[in-house]
Write a protein that binds this DNA or RNA. Sequence first.
RNA 1: GGGCACGUAGCUCAGUGGUAGAGCAUCACGUUGACAUCGUGGGGGUUGUUGGUUCGAUCCCAACCGUGCCCACCA
Length: 882
Amino acid sequence: MLDKYYEHELVEKDVYESWEKDKDFVSQANQPNSEPFCIVIPPPNVTGTLHMGHALNNTLQDILIRFQRMQGKDVLWQPGMDHAGIATEMVVERELAKNNIKKSDLSRDEFVKKVWEWKDVSGGQILNQLKRLGASCNWDRERFTFDEGLSEAVRYVFIELFNQGLIYRDKRLSNWDPKLKTTISDLEVIQKEIKGNLWYIEYDIENSDEKIIVATTRPETMLGDTGIAVHPDDDRYKNLIGKNAILPLVNKSIKIVADEYAKSDQGSGAVKITPAHDFNDYEVGKRNKLEIINIFDEDACLNKNVPEKYQGLDRYDARQIIIEDLTEIGKLIKIEENLHTVPYGDRSDVVIEPLLTDQWFVDAEKLAAQAIKKVKEKETNFIPKNWEKTYYEWMENIQPWCISRQLLWGHQIPVWYGPDRKPFAANSYEDALNLAKNHYGKNVNIEQDTDVLDTWFSSALWPFSTLGWPEKTVEFDKYYPTSVLVTGFDIIFFWVARMMMMALHFTETIPFKDVYVHALVRDEKGQKMSKSKGNVIDPIVLMDQYGADSLRMTLCSMAAQGRDIKLSAQRVEGYRNFITKIWNAIKYFEINDCHHSNTNLEKCKNDFNIWILKQLVQCENETKKALETYRFNEAANTLYKFTWNIFCDWYIELSKTILSEPSHDDKIETQNVASYVLNNIMIMLHPIMPFITEHLWKEIDFINQNNSKKIIHSEWPKIIETDKDDNGNVNKLIEIISSIRSTRSELNVPPKAMVEICYDDNQSGLNEIFNKYSTALSSIAKIKSVQDFKGPRSEGDIQIIHENETFFLKLFNIIDFKEESIRLKKNLSKVSSEIEKIRIKLDSKNFIENAPEDIIQEQKDRLDEYLSSKLKIEDAIKSFSS
RNA sequence: GGGCACGUAGCUCAGUGGUAGAGCAUCACGUUGACAUCGUGGGGGUUGUUGGUUCGAUCCCAACCGUGCCCACCA
């Protein structure tokens, strides 16, 4: 016997352990022709812990994986983790700081060793959390972006791109993170709106009494100014073009140039140019051949290129002092408040400084062409489709990708420099040495580049590097290109786009056929969850409280395409109740000794059984279609409604009339059908709710129809279609029972009071229902008996109209007739207003002339039905008032 | 500035060119046989506004208002 309640804590642990023990996640599809289905997991950071985004992302993947496994496909869900360069380095630095160790105290090798030590002890916590969620990954194939095989792929790709000229070293302005002391890519820069000031500074014109005023949001950068730009058509400044201004505090002469970049209506119309520290100024500087002076060191403190007084100052301290100094010499003309955006590092959250440095770049523009083309040609499809536009937008305006990072934890750039700094890209020191020897014609000393690659460089190879590429492997042949990538929209640029580019360049095929882009999980008020706001809902806490299946079902049912998910615990509770409902339903069938024997379900005779089997077919069709088209919410809702509102609310209730009787053919048939339907509900629910379904499958043998396989390996149902038909009787019965219940409730008939029905038995539709289902009417609608009725209606006969037939509840002495009068009037007004609406439609010439015939007929039929009801209601009202 | 979503019941959200739905909340009634983590019934809507297309629009189109996000720029 099942326990009173489902104890998810114990069950989930047991079930998962048994899956792992029996290697149930390894595909058991052994047929040589079984179709492959493969998903590569978006590798979580090795530092990560499960948040709601992961929970959603992996729930959806697991649903697809389990669903396809049940379809008999050869399934691989490739798991693994990302070494997450910056994130991990920051975590380990923090750990070291607890022991008063600084990163700079350690050598490169020592630091990397510390990171590995940290990883072995504290890394990868998230994988266990994914297991709690039920993720059925092929864990024995777990990969790490820092594994030797994947590192090999990274080196291979780098060297190839280098040799093809698609990776190059360049000195240009890059985003410099002064806290992490590394460059970062454009994508890692976040623009924030900041309230600042606009300072107006006056410069003297050389050899003249004239002045020029510039406006700036960053006065400290003036120390690196090498020019002033004005618009060529700006009459105010035309006479100054070509002259020199004296840079205050530095007392240096800088050139005034004409450049269209200067906008007359902004600031003072004259803009100071700091080519080394601003992307626009850099371009202006190049156009006008201005000197480039770098005034910052790697901490964003002022360096030796500024007057001694300011050397070594932090940029913001310098700003303060410069403002004071300018004020003192009377050169600060005015200060305006100014709202402007400032670039911040996404990891460090400090202001990014554009800095002129040597870095490695990928020529993304060249790689993007194919990546755009393959989506346009629909080889790869985004779902929902609107993300394709975002993808094109970015791809078509793609900038060179800065891939070098001045960090320690990452793939060290496989480049060695000769004595003249000539770079040799090679797989190893020895290979590089040979290249150098060939080049120089003698043995030379070479030194490896100390930078590492952007984490996303290795992630970009993930779909094929995890399958063993560049080696030729069985897995690569079988599973690549992968079937679908499931990811959040926030990493379309970071990851999806780059995988497309790398895959097409190196494997000459798309990396995945579909990209399912899911939404963000927000809190119940629609706020983005964040630690600082304190509104984070921890999926682990929800799983502790309600179980993993409840959380999965919640996420699945809310994963409608194109909308963010606002999650609340209350919703999860609702789906926990759904699980309880299933639990109790199964207890009922267990008590009633339901089991499956070899009865031919096709030959079912009982209407209830025929009906539920037809409903099941419909449910299966809809669920399957929904999952095949990534409509997760529709799948969840279809199953929920079928299980609760059809199977439990009606089939179970109707079956009670049969199962409570002594054994007879109908009973045996019902026991069979009930177990068959439950069996299929369990299978269809399994992808969404794997734990409870696997548990019940094992515990209850009438669900697991003598099948020794676990549910995880069950085949998706092929529902038996009955050749009989109930002629719509059961649906009609349900409608009639609902009408009776509604009437009883409105008239305050005591719930347990048994009442009589009388009706004119010339109404053949009602006749069949009342004769055939008297037991059901009795138990569910509390109908004592049904009588023919020919003569005039007697007092207390309450009319109920179903379609165009009428029957009466005999409620004399039971009800208050005032209530009935109210009920009738309410019904009359409802019917009248419907009639009015339809009449307007049918009276319209346009409608009659233009609408299709079947729509017109439908409206006419509805009108007839309502008119007949109206007469009957009016009749009843009349009889009451008399 | 460019782009993309979204506006439907008190809340969270589905959905559809022809009768607008669910969950939660709310109200009434109901517990000795699957289930109070429940059942039955009720109330609750000018589908953001204004136009257009159409016989017919909540759905398609346009504009507007409001909300959220992405990209770019900002002296």
